[in-house]
Computed example of a mutant assay.
Amino acid sequence: MIPAPFDYVAPSTVDEAISALSEAGEDAKVLAGGQSLLPVLRMRLAAPSTVVDLGKIAELRGVREDGDTLVVGAMTTHYDVQRDPLIAEHAALVRAATDTVADPQIRHRGTFGGAIAHADPAGDLLAPVLALDCELVLAGPGGRRTVPAGEFFQDLFTTALAPDELLVEVRVPKHTGWHAHYEKFNRVAQAWSMVAVAVTVRTDGGGIAEARVALTNMGATPVRATAVEAALVGAPASADTVRAAAEHAAEGTNPAVDGNADAEFRKHLARVLTGRALTAAIG
C-alpha cells in the first residue's frame, strides 16, 4: 500500500527537530532508521500529518565516554553499536543483544534510539537497557530531562516521551568485566523474540557478586527479574545456583497470548532461557 499524504521535514539540529514537532502537534511522527515506522505508514496503521526525519542530525550519532558512563547517540545504527570498542569493553550485554537484532540489512539502517523509543515489548534492546539501569535523555521545548529506564517504558508501545520530545541519547553505566549473554527464542532466524532473557553478572572468587536479569516479551514492557537476581547474589557460581535461580524467572510477569504461544508456555520459556543465559554468561 501507499502511505497517506504527509508533510516531510528534515532538520539538521535537535532544536530544529523539536520546533518541527511542536508546530506539527500530536499527529507528527519521528523518522529515525525507519525500520518500524515505514511498514506502519505503508499499511496505513498510522497517518501522521508530518514526518520529522532525524537522519541529518549528526550530533545524534556515535558512542562516547562520560566518566563511568557510555553515552550512545539515539541515531547510532545497530551496526555501529555492534562494532564499537567502548560497547565491547564496557557494555557486553548491549553488544550481545544487538547481535540478534533482525538481519544485517536492518542493522545497517535501524537505530539504537529508534528501537528503544518504539517500545515494542518483543524488541531485543529494551530488556538490556532495563537490566543495565540505563538512563534516557529526552529533549523538548523546555530543555532536556533524564528518565531512568524503569520509568521510561510505561505500557505497550508507550513511553515517557511527550509528543514534542525526542530521545537524544542513552546513558549506559559501565559494566566493565561483567559477563553477559542474551538468550533469544523465536520461530525462525531474525524474527521477533517470543521470549528472550538479558543477563549480566559480576563474579568474584567463585561467587556471584552482582547480577542483572531482564526479560523480553513477558509483559507489555520489559520486565526486571528481581527474584532471579536475589537468588544469585552471594551464591556460588554453580549449576545448582543457576537451576534454583532460573525457577523464579516468571514471577511477576504477565505474558501475552498470541498465535505464537500462550502465557504458560512463555513462562516455561522464561525459566528455561534464563537458565541457559546464566550458564552461558557464567561459563
Rank of each mutant, 00 (worst) to 15 (best):
V71E: 06
A237N: 07
S12R: 14
R171P: 03
P163R: 02
L273A: 00
A281P: 01
I57M: 08
A92F: 00
S36Y: 09
V30D: 07
R212L: 05
A115M: 15
L60M: 14
T13Q: 13
V201Q: 14
R271L: 00
E59I: 08
L273T: 00
A74L: 10
V94Q: 01
G110T: 05
A58Q: 15
D80Q: 07
A160Y: 03
R224L: 03
V9E: 12
L130Y: 02
A131L: 02
A162H: 00
G55F: 03
A261H: 08
D164S: 04
T77G: 09
A58P: 06
K267S: 10
P141N: 04
A139F: 06
E135M: 04
D53H: 05
E251Q: 15
D68P: 08
Q82E: 14
C134V: 00
V129W: 02
G62F: 06
D15F: 13
L232C: 04
A211F: 03
T98V: 10
A58W: 09
R109W: 09
R107F: 06
H179F: 12
V72Y: 00
R243Y: 10
R61N: 08
P104D: 05
G73A: 07
P222S: 08
A256I: 12
T158S: 01
E210I: 13
G67Y: 04
L31S: 10
M43P: 03
A131S: 04
A270C: 09
S193E: 09
V137L: 01
A214V: 07
G62I: 01
V9C: 10
V257S: 10
V168S: 03
V257E: 15
V242Q: 03
A227F: 08
V40K: 09
M194H: 11
G275P: 07
I282H: 04
H118V: 03
A122N: 08
L41N: 02
R266C: 10
E210Y: 08
A96D: 11
A191C: 12
Q154H: 02
T226A: 15
G259D: 10
P5A: 13
E165F: 11
R266H: 13
V52H: 03
A47N: 11
M218I: 05
Y79N: 07
S238C: 10
A246S: 13
E229I: 08
N260V: 12
G150N: 02
L130V: 08
G140Y: 08
R224C: 02
R42Q: 15
Y79C: 08
S49N: 08
T159P: 05
L54Y: 09
G114S: 05
R107G: 07
G283S: 07
I208K: 07
F6H: 09
A237M: 01
A220K: 14
Q154P: 01
R243C: 05
G283V: 05
V195A: 10
H90R: 13
V170Q: 00
K267I: 01
H108N: 11
T253R: 04
A198L: 10
D68N: 13
S19T: 15
T279E: 14
V188I: 14
A191E: 15
T203F: 07
E229C: 02
V195S: 15
A92Y: 00
R64A: 15
V199L: 11
V147T: 00
T226D: 14
T111N: 04
P85S: 07
A46D: 13
Q82F: 12
E65T: 12
A235D: 06
G62L: 04
M75H: 11
W192H: 14
Q154G: 01
L60I: 09
E23D: 12
